[in-house]
Structures are given as C-alpha cells and as structure tokens.
Design a protein around this nucleic acid. Structure first.
Length: 506
RNA sequence: GCGGGAGUAGCUCAGUGGUAGAGCAUUAGCUUCCCAAGCUGAGGGUCGUGGGUUCGAACCCCAUUUCCCGCUCCA
C-alpha cells in the first residue's frame, strides 16, 4: 500500500536527518524504545513549549507541575492500575488468536443474558399488555436456571481474578466449553498474566515490601498534589494543573515506530470543577483541544473525534481526538471526564481529606476532574507524517521537504554565504551572531547553494538567509521561504523582525 | 505471543560458495554569482549476533536478536 511506503520513508527520513534513532542501536536495539536525535529533540521541545504556553501561560487558572516518576505503591492501588493493568491472557493454539481470558468468560455471560432477554421478549409478545416482566423473571424456570448459571460463573470468575488464580480461570473456560470464535476450537494455552506496569526496587533489595512502579500515566502525580497546589497557589475552582512527563507501559506488543513505545511522554492537564458542571467543561475542553490541533495549520480532515462507548473505570464521558496517521486514524489525545474517582480513591486510601471548600456554596466537596491527555511522541509523529512531502519541481527534479509549522521547526533560520570567499562567510557569521540568541540558527558554507537549500528543506527549516555580493554593497540579504521556494530581498536590519513575524504567524 | 517479509558503508541498495561493490552522503582541494552542477584525491564495512556444514560462507543449515506488515492488545 502507498501509505505503508510513505510510512517507511518517514521512518527512514527520521533516522537519516537526525530526528529519531532506535535506542541502543549498536547493541541491536531495544524493542519499542527510541531516542530523539539533534533535530528530533528540537521539534519535541518546541511541541512541548507550544502546548505549555497554550495551557499554562495562556490560562490564568492553570498552573504547572513536575512530579516524580516514582510514586508511593499505594498510589497505583488507589488509581486502579494494580488491578486493571494486569490482564490474564489466553491463546487459542489453532487460530493463533489471543484473548483476554476474563473477556472470553464475560462474552459467555453476555450470551446467557441474551438468552434471558429473548425469553422475556417472547413472553411479552405472547401475554401482551397484561405481561408482568418482574413477575415473569422471578418465576420462569428457564430464566431462573440461566440466572443461576450466571451467578455461579460470576462466583468463580471474580474471586479467581481477585486472587490471580490463573489456573482457576483456565479451568472455568474449559468447564464452560468456551470455544474460540474464529476457529471454533477449544485448544487453549494456559492463562498468563501480563502486567503493564514496570516495577523496580527502591532501597535495600533484600526486603520484599519495597517494590515500586514506574508510573504508567502522569495523571496520578497531579492528583496526589492537588491539595498542595490548590492551597499554596490559592487556586479557586475551576482550575487546572498541567504536567509534561514520561510514563512507562510494558505493552504486550509495541509497534508502529514511536506511536506505541514502552517509554513515552504525555502532556496532561487535569481540570478540577464543581460536581455537576463536569459535562460543561468536558465539552469546553473537547472544543479547546481540537482548536489547538488546528492552530498548527494541519487540515481539519486529518482529525476526528471518537467518542468512547465503553468507558474506563474512572470516567463518565470520554472522547479521543484521532489523527489520520499513515497507518490510519489513531488516538492522539484523550479528553476524559474522570468524575471524583481519582481524588475519591486517594482520599479513601490515604485517609487524608482531598476536599475543596467552595466559598460560594459555603460547603466542601471532592472536585470532579476533566482531563486532557495528549501523547507527545504521537503529536511528534503526527507533525512529522503530515510534514513529509515529496515534490516534483518544474525543472523535473524532485525534493523532499518537511513542511513543519515554522513555530515547531527544529532550525528556524539557516544563514548561508553564497560563496565561501570574498568576505561573504564573515558577513554571514555576523548575521548569524545577531540572530542566534533568539532563534535556533544554522550556518553552512559547504556545497552549492541549491544543495544547502535542499538539505534545509529536508529538516524543515522554514527560512534561509543568503548572503551574496550585493549584501556587502547595500546591506541586504535574500530570505527564502521553504514551502514556496520564493525569495525576497530585505535589509539586514529587518531580518530578525521579519522572521519573528513569520514564525508567529504560523 | 503467532504468521509473513527484511537486516551488506551514514542512507538507498547490488552482490547464489572463491580477494566485499555502486550511487548518494562525509572529508580535503579546484571550479562555480541562487535551488541536490563538474573535476581530482581521501576516509569509512569482522556483511545484525552466535553456532554448524565446507579446503573456503555475505551466500547453505540451525538458533537468536531487531525492524516492518497482519492478527491480538491498548485506562
């Protein structure tokens, strides 16, 4: 497929031009871990800055935080990650399909429930208006038998899940004679546990009570600091706390370049609101976040919302902003209404009150939370894959140009003497020195001017300043625009302000 | 984890058992007044890793690892 080819080209281009390298490449690499190179780190830093400014600097009621990756182990019990982040998996040996073992059983339960529903609606038709549904369910022998079956299965499944009784879950699947939906076979492997949280030890290795986890999301660092920030910052609801930081997930299968990595970076903002107002703010942030994406100049048709049908354990509403990656529409950012689940859980597990005294209502409550959580690496990949362009020029030659929004471009300006003699390099250096405090600049004198332009097209430098003989006479330079390749001649004195205007204009 | 494909210079790749190559890139110089120009030199590879077969392996066999695709999973 053409898109796959483009994706391959983007990956190759990323390496060739110093955006992304595979981690530990000289040791054959490490699966699903990547390093950002000299240009990648600039792009990533610029994305962070663009987000941070739009959230923290622009909103008076949002402040920042940088919490530690290590957190007290109880944090993850309260958040639900200890239970929910370890899934029992089972493979069918014939179809080679993998399933979550508990989901297989849940699906089986759903089938029985469907049977009951069918029984009820059949009876409903037969008896018409005089039909008493509750009465029927309470007395019909077939319904009762099925309900008993459901009870019995639940009584085996849930304790087994609770106690990590993997053999018990396997036995349950075998006893129920659950077959693979694809192959119809009952030839199952053992049930295995995959814990999605990385763990390590803190302090003495001999004690077994000091296992700690690398955070699987940054949100909890915000929740446990909610009162610290609220009190010391004298924050009034509604207010938000924003954070950019690394998180770690031991994904079973990590794929698609930097889209799903085991170590990744999130940009999150938790917005604390009055209970009952969460849907208003949920809609507000859905809208605000989409506008942020569009402000980068990437066309609207590259984005879409995906509203969650099945909600996570903490949410009462959730939507993803999806981006049209070369491998299809995939999640880029999540906007979740998390209710008071997190603060409530931390309150319960810690025994500390995490309430807010609302002076308007003259009462205390646990705030509700609306979260915006965007993958930094995914945004990086979105920008990169949209920017990557192969163009055929009028003279028949081809060029590869990264049409990165100027505000995000790794290098803002290249300063190029047309020739490396006659004092042109010295003049170019002078201009470079006047710009490099404000902008990421690069000076280049090697190779023909056209080649240097193309090199900067390839890393997405939006502007090239060229110093020629006329510069020495009248103090003007040419400024070349990346996307149009057009040049205009401007006074040296105006270079800095022209570039500033262009970059801020996006 | 299963199935398929791939791994040779920084990049793209050629090389079917007999002295490791090309183009681009890098680098030194010459030439060149605006879009990957030309000329002359130079550097760079234990052919992903480990083992086996062979007089001899980049090439054949086994294992392993990484990447890509599909399945699966994704709070």
């Amino acid at each position: 497929m053409a898109n796959e080819d483009i994706f391959k080209k983007i990956i190759a281009h990323s390496k060739e031009y110093g955006f992304v390298f595979q981690s530990s490449e000289i040791y054959d690499g490490l699966s699903a871990v990547y390093d950002y190179g000299q240009n990648g780190v600039e792009l990533k830093k610029n994305i962070k800055e663009y987000w941070w400014k739009s959230m923290v600097q622009y909103h008076e009621n949002i402040v920042g935080l940088d919490s530690a990756i290590f957190m007290h182990p109880t944090t993850w019990k309260a958040s639900g990650h200890v239970d929910a982040f370890s899934d029992p998996m089972i493979d069918n040996k014939d179809s080679k399909k993998r399933y979550r073992a508990d989901v297989l059983v849940e699906d089986y339960l759903a089938k029985i429930e469907a049977k009951i529903d069918k029984e009820v609606s059949k009876a409903e038709k037969r008896f018409g208006e005089s039909f008493d549904k509750d009465q029927f369910i309470a007395t019909n022998p077939r319904v009762l038998a099925n309900q008993g079956k459901i009870e019995e299965i639940k009584n085996r499944l849930y304790p087994a899940m609770e106690n990590d009784d993997l053999a018990g879950i396997k036995q349950l699947i075998e006893d129920l004679e659950i077959a693979c939906p694809v192959s119809g076979s009952r030839n199952w492997t053992d049930v295995r546990q995959f814990n999605l949280m990385f763990s390590t030890q803190m302090g003495s290795l001999s004690e077994d009570t000091n296992q700690i986890f690398l955070r699987p999301e940054t949100a909890q660092g915000i929740f446990v600091n909610y009162l610290n920030v609220q009190k010391t910052g004298r924050m009034k609801i509604p207010f938000g706390i924003a954070q950019i930081g690394k998180a770690f997930r031991n994904e079973i299968v990590a794929r698609q370049f930097i889209f799903r990595m085991r170590e990744f970076e999130q940009m999150e903002m938790q917005f604390f609101v009055k209970p009952g107002e969460e849907m208003k703010w949920y809609e507000y942030w859905k809208d605000a976040r989409m506008k942020w994406h569009l402000s980068l100049g990437i066309p609207a048709e590259k984005y879409r919302f995906h509203n969650h049908e099945k909600l996570a354990h903490y949410a009462n509403a959730a939507a993803d902003i999806e981006f049209d990656f070369p491998f299809g529409f995939k999640e880029l950012e999540g906007i979740h209404s998390r209710t008071d689940f997190d603060l409530g859980a931390h309150q319960e597990f810690s025994g500390k009150k995490l309430q807010y005294f609302d002076p308007e209502l003259n009462e205390s409550y646990v705030p509700y939370v609306v979260e915006t959580s965007i993958g930094l690496d995914r945004t990086f990949l979105a920008v990169l894959s949209h920017a990557f362009t192969e163009e055929k020029l009028e003279d028949g030659s081809e060029r590869v140009v990264m049409k990165i929004p100027p505000v995000l471009a790794p290098v803002k300006v290249a300063i190029l003497p047309l020739m490396k003699k006659d004092g042109l390099p010295e003049k170019a250096r002078e201009i470079m020195d006047s710009l490099k405090f404000d902008y990421m600049c690069q000076y280049e004198e090697k190779d023909a001017i056209g080649r240097r332009y193309r090199r900067h097209d390839a890393i997405g430098t939006p502007y090239c300043i060229t110093v020629d003989h006329q510069t020495l006479e009248d103090q003007t330079v040419t400024i070349r625009e990346r996307d149009t390749m057009e040049q205009e001649r401007i006074s040296v004195d105006l270079v800095s302000s022209v570039i500033e205007k262009k970059i801020k204009g996006i």
